[in-house]
């Protein structure tokens, strides 16, 4: 597969994603600067973590209207795989490819720690990939990870099996302990935890590999 990793001013997990895809999964990867207008020929796009535009106005708000996002939105609407991690998740909600919004953590504290997550969807290939694990451990590092959606929207997520991951213990106040979701079609994915930081034993664990294996 050919992957595009979009780099915004303030992104800081782009190279982690490139490293994991290239060195661990032997994928074809290129980075794309946010000012470009087209993604080029890619099979999947990652919006990485970081603090695009310094989190000014709202986390992800300005990145969501940067030039390349028009093409990311077109790509997603054509069924292309788009994955937003942390700040990338915030960008996906801001550009309305995913429903809801990520508010300031209920504790008002930046949370930087490993968390346990449970796979919540029965969608494939997620079920199959995660079948051997009751929970996985991924790091989080965010200030605005408190997922919020109105009751109607929450019911829709639940009814359509769009909640991919839930926190075992809620670190940020997210409604229904939501850590990651997908759109109804399943081709747009957003999550606050960082699977790309958990793909090698030397970094504390390899659970993140299950996430990427579910996308390949």
């Amino acid at each position: 597969m050919k992957w595009g990793v979009v780099v915004f001013p303030g992104s800081n997990c782009d190279q982690d994603c490139v490293y994991v895809l290239k060195n661990i999964f032997h994928q074809d990867v290129e980075t794309q600067w946010h000012e470009e207008r087209t993604l080029g020929k890619v099979d999947a796009v990652i919006l990485p973590g970081g603090f695009s535009y310094g989190d000014y106005l709202r986390s992800g708000a300005m990145a969501a209207v940067s030039p390349i996002m028009q093409d990311v939105i077109r790509f997603a609407k054509c069924g292309g795989l788009v994955v937003g991690i942390c700040n990338g998740f915030q960008i996906l909600t801001e550009c309305e490819l995913l429903p809801g919004v990520l508010l300031r953590n209920a504790s008002l504290k930046f949370r930087c720690e490993d968390v346990s997550l449970a796979l919540s969807t029965s969608r494939e290939p997620w079920q199959k990939r995660f079948s051997g694990k009751k929970t996985v451990s991924y790091p989080i590092a965010h200030m605005d990870g408190n997922y919020f959606i109105d009751n109607e929207g929450l019911k829709e997520l639940q009814d359509q099996d769009q909640i991919l991951f839930r926190y075992v213990q809620n670190p940020n106040g997210s409604i229904d302990r939501i850590a990651g979701i997908c759109n109804a079609k399943g081709n747009v994915i957003g999550l606050m935890p960082h699977p790309e930081r958990a793909c090698e034993r030397i970094l504390g664990g390899e659970d993140g590999k299950l996430f990427f294996e579910s996308l390949l």
Binding site: A61, V65, G100
Partner: peptide, 9 residues
């Protein structure tokens, strides 16, 4: 509508 406010919240 497009940037200054997030009308979800």
């Amino acid at each position: 509508e497009k940037l200054l406010a997030n009308t979800v919240i």
